[in-house]
Design a binder for these strands. Structure first.
Length: 259
DNA sequence: AGCGCCTACCGCCAGC
DNA sequence: AGGCTGGCGGTAGGCG
């Protein structure tokens, strides 16, 4: 909105997503913008915020009496600036009537996909997520978001296994354990897994675990040792090595960028 | 940084 | 014959 300054056009939209990030504080003082947001809300336009975008909605006085979330590091600030707003800092995204808000940056993608699912269908949402996976995989092959991993799940018995893996990240996910769970021989399991999931069992499990850790690291403040345990790494060192292998950056540095 | 150990992966092959 | 299955063992690479 600020970049294009075509506020009138914005009022024709069905949905307005308010991004946060650098400059959010200035935006929160832009009376013209805030007036547009109030106008939009009055017209029943669906509003959503990403990260610190919630503070802009708060400045427009739209969060009173509602539930909302934001990046965890700004939860306190949101509480101060949005009296009467119930801030749910652990949520990925929150819907309160026609106003949505989401946590840190990647949570915005979850919110967007949820809106697509609501407007269209789960199938369309998953198809979009699948496209994003293909797109985001290319530059460095690093970006992985949980909703997108979900989109990669199969619809056969291996889809159920993938779900099981996600529900048991902290448990024993050795090849032997997974083969056993699928009632298959180790050899046959490895072969079938590769064919259906297009990845080797161990590499896939590590991807899931690192993704879980990534989310926890960027949107929470648990010590790494705890994150490691919750995500199925034997110790902090194992988490660090796997994380660096996949993300090309150390967990602490990653957290720093989001702090 | 390095080293021995262990797991995962996969080609190979025999059996069904 | 040809496909599926599963055990074996060499190799690579991660882990402690």
């Amino acid at each position: 909105l600020i970049a294009h300054a075509s506020f009138e056009e914005a009022l024709d939209a069905d949905t307005l997503l308010i991004s946060g990030g650098i400059g959010y504080a200035d935006a929160a003082q832009d009376e013209r913008l805030l007036a547009v947001l109030r106008d939009a809300a009055g017209r029943g336009i669906r509003l959503g915020s990403i990260c610190t975008g919630s503070l802009i909605l708060a400045a427009a006085g739209l969060l009173g009496g509602r539930r909302a979330t934001t990046h965890w590091a700004y939860a306190e600030e949101l509480r101060r600036r949005a009296p009467g707003c119930e801030v749910e800092e652990d949520a990925i995204y929150v819907r309160s009537a026609d106003i949505y808000s989401s946590a840190g940056v990647s949570a915005g993608m979850d919110l967007a996909l949820a809106l697509v699912e609501q407007d269209w269908s789960r199938d369309v949402s998953l198809a979009v997520a699948q496209q994003l996976v293909l797109y985001l995989k290319r530059p460095g092959g690093q970006s992985q978001f949980s909703r997108m991993l979900e989109a990669q799940r199969n619809d056969d018995s291996f889809g159920a296994l993938q779900r099981w893996i996600e529900d048991h990240v902290a448990g024993d996910l050795s090849i032997a354990a997974m083969a056993d769970h699928m009632a298959m021989s180790v050899r046959q399991f490895s072969r079938a897994f590769r064919d259906r999931v297009h990845d080797t069992p161990a590499r896939y499990v590590e991807r899931i675990r690192v993704e879980r850790a990534r989310r926890s690291i960027s949107e929470g403040r648990s010590p790494l040792k705890l994150v490691a345990r919750e995500c199925g790494f034997h110790n902090e060192q194992a988490l660090r090595r796997a994380f660096h292998r996949q993300m090309g950056i150390a967990p602490v540095d990653y957290r720093q960028r989001f702090a």
